[in-house]
Amino acid sequence: MFATRSDSPTVPARDSSSESWVKLRRLLGNWQGMTGLVLVILFFASALFAPVFATHDPNALDIPARLSGPSLAHFAGTDQLGRDTYSRVLYGGRVALQVAAIGISVSLAFGLLLGMLAGYGPRWLDNALLLFFDVIRSFPTIVMALAAVALLGPSLNLILAIVIVTTIPGYARLVRTSTMALKNTEFILAERALGAGFGRILWRHITPNVIGPMFILAAMDVPVVVTVEAGLSFLGLGVLPPTASWGSILNEGYLLIRETPWPIIAGGIPLVLTTLGFTFLGEALRDIFDPRLGKGR
């Protein structure tokens, strides 16, 4: 039965271009969204143009200048081998970007596919996939990564694999829930009554409706992925030396904690700014485009 609530009127939009314009203006007008956008752009720019911004070769040794504090020559000081921490941080951003970009795109693709299969496919497939997602989620991420590293040895590819496997369930579940909700809506029934095929329904009518929330979730997942990479590298289980990564810079700094605080500070700040940036941006996007998207995972 239709119960219309007429107490809070909504004005139907008369054209769609002004609608997206209103949303963009809301994003830029919101200081959190603006801060997030600036930080995210900074992250991409510093990683992509690291060779331009760097003042030193990140792996060049300068033993006489080891463990120096910030100066004009070394903006963020040097480590125990005299390498320039500022330049190493810039190059470390490239590793973070690499893991986040590759990991999340692969995981998005798989999540979309598996989620739609679970949501639209037969019941047994749904149950099997759900169990699979539950099992993966039941492995505490870091503990699982440790077990894998114990057997396979540290590498960047392993980090990528861990990131992909652990983030797929999040996307797949989101897609599954929306697909299941959509499956029983009248417009999908209407498509079936019209004789539209399986592929047409999934691609033309379900995908456009689930893809938006996925991108918002992806933005909010970047901090998680970057943290996993930094964390594993911090434990010495990620990228191999001498490649610079925020995690390995922090690890070296941790071992020198009584001698100099600078590597810890310099390695941590970009990590915090990146996670903060993506979180702010993701939240702002969610508030504007999809206020009802899950608040937690």
Partner: peptide, 16 residues
């Protein structure tokens, strides 16, 4: 044989 569904707006695919 065609069908018209209950909800006038909800029975139209929203992104088309």
């Amino acid at each position: 044989m065609a069908m018209m569904f209950q909800d006038p707006i909800g029975s139209l695919s929203p992104r088309q």
